[in-house]
């Protein structure tokens, strides 16, 4: 099945089995293995990529649903030598251990800061009318769709705070 979409700014034309998930298209057919398969169920967040700027679990989405979309997986955020502020903050704050959930955490965190900037409330936002603040509680709540079994959560929160400070 023919699908045309933009990946990391490059237009790609793919002709794949219609059952192919966006995640498997990236990993098996485009050589972009930075997006991880942790569960293939939308339960762990390791496959999180940005689609038209929003965070999405790539395992829960078929490639053929993304005609014309702009997809940015982790490789598009920055590479060694030119890391994004969020990637750099994860290194400095040790916001990972084994590294397997990390690309998903970073894609998720990158989009999450944008959601806060746009004023989206979360479950822990007290005042739905007010602009949410970047508290530890807000970050933890909004990052809870990304599991980390090494349990780097406190460091992930620190890394996001650091990256937010730099980009603010």
């Amino acid at each position: 099945m023919q699908t045309s979409l933009t990946i990391n700014g490059e237009t790609r034309q793919l002709d794949l089995d219609p059952r192919t998930s966006l995640l498997d298209a990236l990993r098996h057919h485009l050589g972009l293995t930075g997006s991880k398969k942790g569960c293939d169920h939308g339960q762990c967040g390791a496959c999180t990529v940005l689609i038209n700027g929003r965070r999405v679990n790539a395992c829960l989405s078929l490639l053929c649903m993304h005609e014309g979309d702009e997809v940015v997986p982790i490789e598009g955020l920055g590479q060694p030598g030119a890391l994004s502020p969020m990637q750099q903050a994860f290194v400095e704050k040790d916001g990972y251990q084994c590294g397997y959930c990390t690309p998903g955490q970073i894609c998720s965190a990158t989009a999450m800061l944008e959601e806060i900037a746009q004023g989206w409330p979360s479950h822990v936002t007290a005042d739905l009318e007010a602009r949410p603040e970047l508290t530890t509680e807000e970050i933890s709540e909004r990052m809870s769709g990304n599991l980390c079994r090494c349990s780097a959560y406190p460091n992930i929160v620190d890394a996001i705070r650091k990256a937010a400070g730099e980009t603010a």
Partner: peptide, 14 residues
């Protein structure tokens, strides 16, 4: 910092 950190955060650790 972990020396392999840049690979892990950029999805290039294999």
């Amino acid at each position: 910092d972990r020396p392999e950190g840049p690979l892990k955060v950029s999805g290039t650790a294999t």
